[in-house]
């Protein structure tokens, strides 16, 4: 019996090491923006508001403007989505070559509060996606972005989210092209897009 206890302890220790490594992998180098020259292809597999799984392959041939956020975010997210809406309006006949996507980093609450009503209030073209915990984490890692739940007793439901607030541009063949830092004026984003379309 003693051996069994000892073995259990060993297994527990091994488990702890795995957890520690996993945590280290998750927190290490959380937000280093990808370098422009380091081309990569972000992937995602996330549910839309109707529950259909959408992946990057669904949008092949289009430029994607991708933003990670959450709908209870009062400042950063509405500001960025407003700029995206402005860009989509100003693109005119080129608008159908660009797909704006809002990926929720707070998917359970956002599905409850209503994702489509939120994104369409900014612009009907914006597609809201909210996966499960694992899918969301995988998408964020694929885009090299960081998000974290932060406990805050004063916030609604007792928590808020911190997240990378940039806007990511993916090319028609799926390559990561660039990011627009938070606060980039809509006109700058528009000019960049026009030069590519």
């Amino acid at each position: 019996m003693r051996l069994t206890t000892f073995q259990k302890a060993l297994w527990a220790a091994a488990g702890l090491v795995c957890l520690a490594y996993g945590t280290w992998v998750l927190v290490a180098d959380p937000a280093t923006p990808p370098r422009a020259e380091a081309a990569f292809r972000p992937v995602f597999s996330l549910s839309d508001a109707e529950g259909r799984i959408r992946t990057e392959a669904d949008f092949a041939g289009k430029h994607l403007l991708v933003f990670f956020g959450f709908t209870s975010c009062p400042d950063v997210c509405p500001t960025t989505l407003s700029e995206v809406a402005q860009v989509m309006d100003d693109l005119g006949s080129d608008a159908d070559k660009v797909q704006p996507i809002f990926i929720s980093v707070d998917p359970v609450r956002d599905r409850r509060l209503g994702l489509a009503a939120y994104t369409s209030a900014f612009h009907p073209a914006i597609l809201g996606l909210a996966g499960d915990e694992v899918q969301t984490r995988a998408a964020a890692e694929s885009f090299h972005i960081y998000f974290e739940r932060q406990d805050d007793p004063a916030a609604p439901d007792g928590y808020t989210m911190s997240h990378s607030p940039a806007l990511y541009l993916i090319g028609p063949d799926g390559d990561w092209l660039r990011q627009f830092a938070y606060g980039t004026p809509a006109s700058d984003i528009l000019n960049d897009l026009r030069s590519r379309l």
Binding site: P30, Y146, T160, P165
Partner: peptide
């Protein structure tokens, strides 16, 4: 916004 992460 610290190190590319927005918090509030």
């Amino acid at each position: 916004v610290t190190d590319g992460v927005a918090s509030m």
